[in-house]
Structure formats: structure tokens, C-alpha cells
Design a protein around this nucleic acid. Structure first.
Length: 828
RNA sequence: GCGCUGGUGCUGGAAUUGGCAGACAGGCAUGGUUGAGGGCCAUGUGCCGCAAGGCGUGUGGGUUCAACUCCCACCCAGCGCACCA
């Protein structure tokens, strides 16, 4: 009856049974508490899954299976992020339509996920490039549009020449696009934006309410980049107002110059005739520098005096106006007051051009000395807070007080106003590409920009044989007259469709809602189902989406909450990032590098359960690790050993005789450890706990101890404990033991704390901090007896020779520590 | 430069959160089984030492009866931020 362990026979058999019996179907009913466990839905690449993906999908599968056995109603779905540039690029490279490649790739992904035993509810599979899905992406676009959160604007955009499309500022960082192409430039193209900046504060505040890695929260906070301060209106001599933004109005009396970004419109007007040639040359040079070069040059500051002056509204001083590219045109007002004594950048600039440095804030313990040192050399900018000096009526105030009083003063005299600045920009959603969700807008000659009415959705993405971008900066859809030409939904007159599509991040901003009712056709989701499952209880994926997807989806959720569609504002209650699994060469796996290890080859050689066990065991969940095939054999050996425990030798003929107290204790200890450690995402130690237990069982069996009731009990429980991590072998053993039903429908075992308790304790005896002896005692033995036994121990006596015990510290059940001193030789 | 996170045998890692460092694996070594290979089984495996014993968790200090764990300084690695006024 018990053959050799053959995972390649067992695994597909059970996978089929599970699918046929609908074991993983999630139904929103019953008294069980719900648990929505979500993986970042993948882009179904042509490379297929590699073992690195399993590092994400295996742990969430363990959690899902465990939670089901723990009595939760679990939703564990999977779908495809199949719209967007990667899919289109792949199709182009293969000379095939992306619909075809997407369908092939998703079929392959699904096959591989089943192969490794993932318990997804495939009846809820979604595909973001299907009309049933993108219809509702368009619906959300219209919702944003109607709420004034989607707008069309012609502006300088980030442009990736490789992708042939505009990018959001979030996607173009450091001269590279998010797909890793270099050479990102600026191009003036009209495009659609989402007004994410309107949600800066709610998005910031929401972070305090969610259980996410602090690292990710910090990245989002940095990205939003909120700073509080005020605008101060400087004036040109011609009387023109030039506001500057500052977070340090307390340093305004220290302004000794004024700087405009080269792009600032005032440069033209403020520049004097004798300086004009120099200024224009500087601006031209700055324009030649790409934004990237400008930002990477974080050391040397350059600039030119314009010959013009502005007046500081607080002290009436006339300060020189410079142009310098360290001032960014897009942040604040594109102009700053130069306070070299209290700002490092201004200090560097003043140093380079010999501008005066005037201290107006005294640090702790400085006081009068600062006033005396006023014109002497200052070594560095003092950027801390302190007490104001040489600041007119505000002298003597602390920085904190001064900031308030100066802001009050500015507002009372209309010289400025309190202001909050954000670094985050609006989200550019337009892509001049074919493979994406068409933007549901038409342009009517009479009515202008008109949203497509909801009942006309979806605006179908038309079939197109030649969908390659042509370098015109317009979407390939613009070449398709039958798509472009339409009628105005308002007046019925001739109109043209918007030909841009939405970037893929639109799809991923709401897909998690669709899983709650993937076939619903009256709206993006069925409200009852949404209320039942949402928010997502556990969301697991790589840390690379820290700001893009994870910020956008929060934004959409906040908007939907404001629109009354959702009863919560944060979509993902808890987020975890798994560690990366790198190739054996330490690099990321990719087909182009030729270092991909597929689950297919590993399953063929070792079985899916061994692959799962190994991936869980190789390193802590959140730690990066390089793949090595050396250890996977250990996982397989472990499963062989498990299998061997059930082999006919004694289990069949065994008559049950007696108890095995140690074994029973080990069983309960193992139940406790496995339960607590799965809950804590410490899967590597879940596996080691199971290994220890199996080793003990194997030892018992070998030494003839396999016929006790305790051993029987252990064999009955082991498949249940293995079910989350090694679901196939667990199911097979469960059935071979003759139990009815699936092991995955069993209730997770409880541990008996009393049974798990040791009754012989190992006490370590220390003499002057060093362990000198270890002995076992009954758990009910008291301190005095432990001491007595310790003092009688030869090793302890040896180290106590010639010394006297000054102090004895007893930590119950653990340690007895003697502190000694040298016995004084008896003086004559 | 600033901010996280980490640094433990040959390797991956463990340590009930201040209480026997190296669990559990991989690798290696020796022996057994086998026609051979693989596989499997047994034993050993932190360093020095014949031993008694000593040393040992990136480095240096500190707190404590007791430190991988807490505190201070520093070194290294990875990630994030980096002219945001």
C-alpha cells in the first residue's frame, strides 16, 4: 500500500481533485470571520514564473491554507496585470498581437501556479486587459473626471524614447524610466493628469492607521514631501511682487541675496542691461543641462548676478538678485531668499560668490557672541533652531515663537501668508500607446471636451494589426480613423475620440476591489461582496512598488470613499514585503541574463512540496537570498523521512501499547511552535520545528517505540501540521491513513499547554558568570534543593575550591548563578 | 551627507526577547550498505589545545551575577532620501 514517495504522481492528482471539488472557492457567507489575503497581481511576462516569484506566492499560500484551517473564510485570488508597456513590448518583439501573447502568458502563469500548489480561487481570476475589467477602469476615470480630479493639460512631460510615451514623474526617476530605459527627456505634449496632489494630506494622515513596514511609509512620506512654512512677498524696484516660499521665516533678517531659477519669468525683467549678456548665456547653459545632470551636480553651485534688486519686506533692505540653477523652477515659487548663515545651500552659494553672511539665529549657548561675530568669518551654516538676534522687533524670540509672530506680521500687513508646500506632483496618466485602457473622452467641435456617458462604456480598444508607435508623439490609435471619428454624446455632432490610453497603474489602482465580485456587470464591484471582503487583510509583494502602485491605489480608494462608494479609506490593512530571491550569481533572475530557475524544473526534480518547503526554509521571509540548488535536497529528504514514518513496517501490524510522555510533549510543543511561527511569518523556523519533530518520530520508530498511542496520535496529527506548507503529501498521507475528507478542511489542532510543559528542567549552574555544570531537575523542585544539588556537583565544587560564595542568583527553571570571591589567606 | 536595516561556524541560518551561542539544514570527513555511481544509514564537524582548560556572535568601550540580545563610539554591507528653500 505504501510505495516510495513519488511527488510527481501525488501532486497533479490532488491538484485536480482540489480544483474539481472547489476546495479553494471563496463564498461570502457563514459565521466565519473573513480573511482577504492578496498577492500583488503580476504582469504575465513571456518568461513565465521563476522560483523568485514563489518567494511571494508560497508564504501567502501557507497563510491562506493555515487561516482556512483556523476557521477563517479566506479569499485568496489571482489575476493578471496585463495592460501596459511590458506586454505591448513583448508582443512587438515577437511580432504577435498582445491579446494573443497575453492569453498565452496568463495560461502559462496559471499552469505554473497550480503546479506549485497555490490555493487560488480560480473562479475569480481577472485580467485587466479584458473589456469586462477595463470598462470599470474607464468608469473610475469618469468618476475622477466628474469630481474634478482628472484634467487635460499641455505641459512639458517626461518622455521615454524607448517606450515612446510620456511618463508620470513617479515613473521617471534619475533619468531612467521605471522600466529601466535611460535617456528620459522632456517633451511638450498635452496629456491627462489625476489630481493626486489634492489628496496629499489624507494620504499622509492615512499612513498612521495602517500596519505597513515603516520603510514603505517613510518612502511615501518623502514622496509627498509636505513642508509647512510661508510665502514672503519681496518686491522689485519696479514694484512687482515676487513671493518666495520658506520653512524658516525666522531667518528672514539674514537674507543677504535673492535667487531666481533660470526659468523664472522675472529674470527677463529684473536683469540690468550691463548684465544681460552674461545672464542670457547662463540661462542657455542651464537649459542645455538636462534636469538629471542638474540634480546630480550636488556640489558646485553656479549663478550670475542679474544687476537687479528686490526689497525684503521685513527690514526694507535692498538685496541683489541672482540667477542660479540650484533653485528649482517647479518647487515653491521658483525663487528663494538667500540666507547663507542658516541654510547650507545658500551658504555654499555665498561662499562661491563672496556674498555676505549674516547670522540672525544664535544656537544654544551662543548669545551675544553671535552679534559680535556678525561680520567675521562664519565656518558653516547653522541650520538648527535658536534665539533670534539682529532681527528687529523679533530679536530675543525663540525660532519657534518667531516663526509664528513673523507669519502673523506678514498676514496682518499683507506681506505674505502661511503656506504648505508638497513635493508630490499630479499623476500623469496618458500614454501614447496602444495596449492600454482607452481614455473615455471625446472632443466635440461645439461642446469641447465631453466625457463618454457611463452607459456607453466600455470604449473598446479596437483591433489593430500595426500598433507600433511612430515617433510622432501620438498614440497609434490616432491613425485609426474609424476609432477616432465619432459623434458627440451631447449634441450628436462630429467629434474625435481621445487616443491616449491609460498607464497600467490605473488598472492596478482598483483591481483588488474587483476580486470581491469579478463577474458583476452592474458596477465595478457588487456592494455587498465588497463590504464583506474589503479591506484587504494581508497584502504581500515586493518592496519595489513602495510609492507607485501603493500610493495610487490608496489615492483611488480615498476618492471612492469620498464618493460614498466605500466605507473605508485605506485598502490594505497590513502590508508585508517578502525578501528578494536572487539568481545564484546574486543578480535578479531574467531571461536576458540567462539565469532563470523555473519552478517547472525544480518540481520535476524534487516535487512541488519540496520546492515549497525549501523556499520557506532557506531564509527568513523578509530577507534577500540567492538561490542555490544545494539545499533543496534537504527539503526532499525531509519529506522522504516523513513518508517513511508511515511505511508498513510497524504501523500496520502495530498493536497500540502504552503512552510515550516525551513524544506527547513534543507533539504539543510542535503544534504550539508551528502555530505561533506561521502567525509571525517565521516560516523558516516553522520548517525546522517540523523537522525536529519528524526526527524524533523517526528515532522512535527505529528504536521500536512506534507502537504507542502517542506515536499513533503523532502520525494522525502530522499531516494536519504539514498541510499549509506541504499540501500534497499531507493530503496523500491523510487519505492513506483512512481519514475521510480533505486534510485541508480539518480544524487546526490546539495545543495543550500542560502537556507541552517539560517535567524535567535543565538547570545551568554558573560560577562567576561561566557555565560549569548542567543538570536536570523535576519541574516542581524548589530553589533550596537546586542549590544543594548544584553545590554537590563535582564540576561546581572544582570551581568553587578556594573561593567563597558571596551571592547566589536563581532564575527559576533556567539558571543558578554563583558569585564568589577569593578566600582571604588567614593573616598572621 | 542624512535615515533605516543588517553583520553569528565552510554555507543558509537558530537562540523562548538579558539566562547553556551555533537549533534545523546544506557542505565536508570517516565508516557502513552497493558490482560501480547515485541514493540511503551511522558517526564527527566553531577556533586553539594531547588534556585540563582557554577563546569565540564586525571593532573598541560600558552596564549586569549573566550580553548575539541593552547603552556609547566606530568600521563594513545593503536599501531609501539627497540642492524641495
Amino acid at each position: 500500500m505504501f510505495r516510495n514517495y513519488n511527488p510527481n504522481e501525488i501532486e497533479p492528482r490532488w491538484q485536480q481533485v482540489w480544483e474539481e471539488t472547489g476546495l479553494h472557492r471563496a463564498v461570502e457567507s457563514g459565521e466565519k470571520p473573513k480573511f482577504y489575503c492578496l498577492d500583488f497581481f503580476p504582469y504575465p511576462s513571456g518568461d513565465g514564473l521563476h522560483v523568485g516569484h514563489c518567494r511571494n506566492y508560497v508564504p501567502t499560500d501557507v497563510i491562506s491554507r493555515f487561516k482556512r484551517m483556523r476557521g477563517f473564510n479566506v479569499l485568496h485570488p489571482m489575476g493578471w496585470d496585463s495592460f501596459g508597456e511590458p506586454a505591448e513590448q513583448f508582443a512587438i518583439a515577437n511580432g504577435v498581437h498582445p491579446r494573443l501573447t497575453t492569453d498565452q502568458n496568463t495560461a502559462n502563469f496559471r499552469r505554473q501556479m497550480i503546479l506549485i500548489g497555490c490555493s487560488y480561487d480560480w473562479s475569480r481570476e481577472i485580467d485587466s486587459s479584458s473589456p469586462e475589467f477595463y470598462r470599470w477602469t474607464q468608469w473610475f476615470f469618469l468618476m475622477l473626471y466628474k469630481r474634478g480630479l482628472a484634467y487635460h493639460d499641455a505641459n512639458w512631460q517626461w518622455w521615454c524614447p524607448t517606450c515612446q510615451t510620456t511618463l508620470s514623474s513617479h515613473e521617471a526617476v534619475g533619468g531612467e524610466c521605471w522600466r529601466g530605459h535611460t535617456g528620459v527627456t522632456r517633451r511638450e505634449i498635452p496629456a491627462w493628469y489625476f489630481r493626486i496632489t489634492a489628496y496629499a494630506d489624507p494620504l499622509l494622515d492615512g499612513l498612521d492607521q495602517i500596519d505597513w513596514p515603516e520603510r514603505i511609509k517613510t518612502m511615501q512620506r518623502n514622496w509627498i514631501g509636505r513642508s509647512e512654512g510661508c510665502e514672503i512677498d519681496f518686491r522689485t524696484e519696479a514694484g512687482e511682487v515676487v513671493p518666495v516660499f520658506t520653512t524658516r521665516p525666522d531667518t528672514v533678517y539674514g537674507a543677504t541675496f535673492f535667487v531666481l531659477a533660470p526659468e523664472h519669468p522675472l529674470v527677463e525683467r529684473v536683469t540690468s542691461e550691463d548684465q544681460r549678456a552674461q545672464v542670457e548665456a547662463y540661462i542657455a547653459a542651464a537649459a542645455r543641462l538636462s534636469e538629471i545632470d542638474r540634480l546630480s551636480e550636488s556640489h558646485e553651485k553656479t549663478g550670475v548676478f542679474t544687476g537687479g534688486f528686490v526689497v525684503n519686506p521685513l527690514n526694507g533692505e535692498r538685496v541683489p538678485v541672482w540667477v542660479a540653477d540650484y533653485v528649482l523652477p517647479a518647487y515653491g515659487t521658483g525663487a528663494v531668499m538667500g540666507v547663507p548663515a542658516h541654510d547650507e545651500r545658500d551658504f555654499g552659494f555665498a561662499r562661491a560668490y563672496g556674498l555676505p553672511v549674516r547670522r540672525v539665529v544664535a544656537g544654544p549657548g551662543e548669545g551675544q557672541q553671535v552679534e559680535r561675530d556678525q561680520e567675521s568669518a562664519v565656518e558653516a551654516a547653522y541650520t538648527g533652531e535658536g534665539v533670534l538676534v539682529s532681527s528687529g522687533p523679533f530679536s530675543g524670540l525663540s525660532s519657534i515663537e518667531a516663526i509664528e509672530r513673523i507669519c502673523d506680521h506678514l498676514e496682518e500687513h499683507s506681506l505674505g501668508r502661511r503656506k504648505v508646500q508638497y513635493r508630490m506632483r499630479d499623476w500623469l496618466i496618458s500614454r501614447q500607446r496602444y495596449w492600454g485602457t482607452p481614455i473615455p473622452i471625446v472632443y466635440c467641435e461645439k461642446c469641447g471636451e465631453v466625457p463618454v456617458p457611463e452607459e456607453q462604456l466600455p470604449v473598446l480598444l479596437p483591433e489593430m494589426a500595426d500598433f507600433q508607435p511612430d515617433g510622432s508623439g501620438r498614440s497609434p490609435l490616432a491613425r485609426l480613423a474609424e476609432f477616432v471619428n465619432t459623434t458627440c454624446p451631447d449634441c450628436g455632432g462630429p467629434a474625435r475620440r481621445e487616443t491616449d490610453t491609460m498607464g497600467g497603474f490605473a488598472c492596478s489602482s482598483w483591481y483588488f476591489l474587483r476580486f470581491t465580485s469579478p463577474h458583476y456587470d452592474q458596477g465595478p464591484f457588487e456592494p455587498q461582496a465588497m463590504r464583506y471582503w474589503m479591506p484587504v487583510d494581508l497584502y504581500v509583494g515586493g518592496a519595489e512598488h513602495a510609492v507607485l502602485h501603493l500610493l495610487y491605489s490608496r489615492f483611488w480608494t480615498h476618492v471612492m470613499a469620498d464618493a460614498g462608494l466605500l466605507p473605508f479609506r485605506e485598502p490594505f490593512t497590513r502590508l508585508l514585503n517578502q525578501g528578494q530571491l536572487l539568481a545564484p550569481d546574486g543578480l535578479r533572475m531574467s531571461k536576458s541574463r540567462g539565469n532563470v530557475i523555473t519552478p517547472d524544473s525544480m518540481v520535476a526534480a524534487y516535487g512541488a512540496d519540496a520546492l515549497r518547503v525549501y523556499e520557506l526554509f532557506m531564509a527568513p521571509f523578509d530577507q534577500d537570498v540567492s538561490w542555490s540548488e544545494e539545499g533543496i535536497n534537504g527539503a526532499r529528504r525531509f519529506l522522504n523521512r516523513v513518508w517513511g514514518l508511515y511505511s508498513a513496517a510497524d504501523s500496520e501490524k502495530a498493536t497500540v501499547v502504552g503512552e510515550d510522555r516525551d513524544l506527547a510533549r513534543a507533539l504539543h510543543k510542535t503544534i504550539r511552535r508551528v502555530s505561533e511561527r506561521i502567525e509571525a511569518f517565521r516560516f523558516n523556523t516553522v520548517i525546522s520545528a517540523l523537522m525536529e519533530f519528524v526526527n524524533l518520530l523517526a528515532e522512535r520508530k527505529r528504536s521500536g517505540g512506534g507502537r504507542t498511542a502517542s506515536f499513533k496520535q503523532a502520525l494522525d496529527t502530522l499531516p494536519v501540521l504539514l498541510a499549509p506548507v506541504a499540501p500534497h503529501i499531507a493530503e496523500e498521507l491523510w487519505h492513506q491513513l483512512g481519514h475521510p475528507g480533505s486534510v485541508h478542511l480539518q480544524t487546526w489542532p490546539a495545543w495543550d499547554a500542560a502537556l507541552a510543559q517539560e517535567d524535567i528542567l535543565q538547570i545551568a549552574v554558573q560560577v562567576d558568570g561561566k557555565v560549569r555544570a548542567v543538570f536536570g531537575i523535576d519541574s516542581d523542585v524548589g530553589e533550596e534543593q537546586v542549590k544543594e544539588q548544584a553545590l554537590a556537583h563535582p564540576k561546581v565544587q572544582q570551581h568553587l575550591a578556594g573561593r567563597e560564595v558571596v551571592q547566589a542568583i536563581y532564575v527559576p527553571r533556567k539558571v543558578l548563578s554563583f558569585v564568589t570571591r577569593q578566600v582571604e589567606p588567614i593573616a598572621e
